[in-house]
Nucleic acid binder design. Structure first.
Lengths: 198, 198
DNA sequence: ACTATTTCTTGATGCAGTTCATTGGAAAGA
DNA sequence: TCTTTCCAATGAACTGCATCAAGAAATAGT
C-alpha cells in the first residue's frame, strides 16, 4: 500500500547499515510518519525546539542561520536519502538558532523526539545505527571545516561541484554562495572565470 | 592502586552520561590502557590507520592537516577530559590524512578499534554513550563551522578566547592562528589592536 | 501572455587578511 | 653558560573577496 511504499527508502537505508528483523522494520513503520513540505515552507523555525528527526525521501531542504546583519549562512543542504535536523536543539530540548526550509516540494519521513527515545528503548540496535549515521555526518562536517580554513573560495567551489554535482542544477547560485561563505557576486565571477579558462 | 587512579577520570566521565554498573566499570578498566606521549611526539601520523580512540587525562593534543604548500591547519585541540581521534580513519580502517601530536607531555587512556567493538558487544550501553558523545562533538563542530562562514577573524578570535580561555596560555599563538584559519602575523595585529583599544 | 519577483552578471571601489622580509626576545638543549 | 631554535612583533606591498549600484535574464504567479 501507499504507506509501505513511502517507508521503503528508509528501510533500505537502515538495512545498508545493519540488517533489521521484521519486528524492527515494524517499529520503523510505526514510528516514522511521512510529511510533505511545500517549496519555501519552514520545517523548523528559529526559536522553536526541533522536535523531529527528518529523513528526506524526495526533494531538498536547507538548514541555515540568519545573522545580525540579516545575511543567511547555509550549514547544510539535504536531498534524497539524507538526514536533516538541528541535532543540538533536538537533543537538548532548547530553542533553535537555525532554520530549516524546503528548496523544493519535499517529502520527508520524520520521527518525534519522544518516539525516537522509545525506538532506542525497544530496539537498542538503533543506538548503534544512529551512532554510525552521526559518525558519518561528523566526518563530512570535519572535511568541510578543513576546506574552509585551508582553501580559497575557488577551491571550495570546485570541491562543492565534486561532492554535490547532482544538486548544482537544482539549487540557485545564491544558495550555493551562501553555503560556500561568499557573496553571490563573487561566485558569479568565479564561474565566469572558469568557463573562459579551461 | 595506580591503574585505578588513572582510570578514574574516564569512569567519572562516563558516569556523567549514563551511570555504569560494576561490570561495565570493569570492562572499561580492562579495555582502556594508559599511555604517555612526550611533547611533540606523534599520536597518529599521516598515512597510518587510526587504531586508538583517545581520552585525555592530562596534557594537550592537536589534530591537524598539512596541505600541499606545507601549511598546517589545526582541526582540533584537546585537553583534559576531551576525546581525540581521527574518527573517519578509525571506523573506515583507512589511512589518515591527518596528524595528531602532543603540545605538552600528555597522558591518555586509549582503546583499540578491536576492543571498542568488543566493548560495544559486551555492553551495548556504550553504543548509546558513544552516540551521545559524538552528538555533542557534532554540535560543537557545527557551531565552529558556522562561525567560520559567518564571522571575521577578530570575531572568531574573541569567541575562541571565550571557549578556550584555559588553553590560551598553554598554546603558542602560531597554533591558535592555525586553528582560526589566519596567519600568525595577522593574529599578532589583532592582539595588538585589542590591547590598545579597550 | 504579462507582470512581478527573483536570480545572474558586470563594473568600480575599498578593506580584511596575506606574503615576504626583518628584528628582538624567550625558551630549549648541550 | 653559550648556542640554537622557536616565537612574537611590525612594516610595506599585494590580493581575495566584499560592498554598492545598476541592468539583464530567467522564473513564478495570475
Amino acid at each position: 500500500d501507499i504507506i509501505h511504499s513511502q517507508i521503503q527508502p528508509l528501510l533500505d537505508y537502515f538495512q545498508k547499515v545493519i540488517p533489521l528483523s521484521n519486528d524492527e522494520k515494524q517499529l520503523v513503520t510505526n514510528f516514522f510518519k511521512p510529511r510533505l513540505y511545500r517549496k519555501k515552507q519552514y520545517v523548523l523555525q528559529e526559536g522553536d525546539v526541533c522536535n523531529q528527526f527528518n529523513f528526506i525521501v524526495r526533494g531538498c531542504l536547507r538548514m541555515y542561520k540568519v545573522d545580525d546583519k540579516g545575511n543567511t549562512h547555509i550549514l547544510q543542504f539535504a536531498a534524497e536519502n539524507w538526514w536533516l535536523s538541528n541535532i543540538g536543539s533536538f537533543h537538548e530540548r532548547k530553542p533553535s538558532e537555525l532554520n530549516i526550509d524546503a528548496l523544493e516540494d519535499t517529502m520527508v519521513l520524520q520521527i518525534s523526539h519522544e518516539n525516537l527515545l522509545l525506538l532506542y528503548i525497544n530496539a537498542p540496535k538503533f543506538d548503534r545505527i544512529f551512532r554510525v549515521l552521526i559518525e558519518n555526518s561528523f566526518v563530512s562536517l570535519q572535511k568541510r571545516l578543513l576546506q574552509n580554513i585551508s582553501s580559497t573560495a575557488e577551491e571550495r567551489y570546485n570541491s562543492f561541484l565534486d561532492s554535490y554535482l547532482h544538486l548544482t542544477n537544482r539549487i540557485p547560485q545564491t544558495q550555493i554562495a551562501s553555503f560556500l561563505g561568499i557573496t553571490p557576486e563573487f561566485l558569479s565571477r568565479l564561474r565566469n572565470k572558469q568557463t573562459k579558462k579551461p
